[in-house]
Design a protein around this nucleic acid. Structure first.
Length: 264
DNA sequence: ATGGCCCGTAGAACGGGA
């Protein structure tokens, strides 16, 4: 079973790239963030024609999340849910469902804008609620993947210029502490379960030739629960779509869960 | 030293992103 996450920065603009990518990378499950589409405009028919079913929760201009899965798997989603039951939120940043025996959470964590700002406070409160809810989910379904755009670089090695980013939003101590608290529930950063090249990132600024100079951050993650961790066989960031014309500023991250009961 | 791009909503610039 392969599970991927990708912040597409407008699915309206990026749908052709998503379809192209899925054709070359027919993952079982794809979590999308920043779709920026109201539900009535979500391209469910186009995705179905490409062999993917979907659930989605979006809004205009900002936010929006979706989970796609291969129709030929014959899965019926259960526990399908929009948002966090413990955090009423008008912003569409969370969607989850159980698919193929795995509870999948697709998250678009708030950016936070700047340390100390109202948006930063919202980010921390939002994340605290995610921690609380994830703890409860693990009690009922230990096979859990929390995937998405976390807007947090876990460590300095996930940052192209740690000195410049020190204590800035996405890298600040309170944000990193919260990510660690989430992982302390029994979740692992799938990317770090394997040897990885130095300076591997998942986001690069559109400006200043950020991608060409590899001035990036690793902020998109797939966290796997202890029950699934032994099944993880690879986790890779696919830089290829970032080289395409009119790309998203984020690259997809792909986790492979090996044989076992993951494809039940 | 500053901001440099992209997207959506606009129907011109601007907020937001990271």
């Amino acid at each position: 079973m392969k599970i991927a996450t990708w912040n597409v920065n407008s699915l309206k603009i990026r749908l052709p790239q998503v379809l192209t990518w899925l054709q070359a990378n027919p993952v079982d499950i794809l979590c999308l963030q920043e779709t920026k589409l109201t539900d009535d405009r979500f391209p469910a028919l186009e995705l179905a024609a490409a062999g993917y079913q979907s659930i989605y929760s979006g809004q205009s201009t900002y936010n929006g999340v979706a989970i796609l899965w291969r129709a030929d798997r014959g899965w019926e989603p259960s526990q399908s849910m929009i948002g966090n039951p413990h955090f009423p939120d008008e912003q569409k940043r969370l969607i989850s469902a159980e698919l193929g025996g795995v509870r999948v959470v697709c998250a678009y964590v708030p950016n936070g804008q700047a340390v100390g700002s109202d948006k930063y406070d919202y980010k921390l409160r939002w994340f605290d609620a995610l921690i609380a809810w994830t703890g409860e989910m693990l009690n009922t379904q230990p096979r859990l993947v929390v995937a998405g755009d976390y807007n947090i670089a876990p460590e300095d090695r996930d940052v192209h210029d740690p000195a410049a980013w020190a204590d800035q939003v996405l890298c600040s101590v309170p944000e990193r502490d919260r990510l660690r608290q989430l992982m302390a529930l029994g979740l692992s950063d799938a990317f770090r379960l394997f040897d990885q090249p130095d300076k591997t990132f998942s986001w690069w600024d559109y400006r200043q030739l950020g991608f060409q100079k590899n001035r990036g951050l690793r902020i998109d993650h797939l966290l796997v629960s202890d029950a699934l961790k032994p099944l993880a066989s690879s986790c890779l960031i696919d830089r290829a779509p970032r080289k395409w014309q009119q790309p998203s500023d984020h690259a997809p991250v792909v986790l492979e869960l090996g044989p076992g009961r993951a494809t039940d």
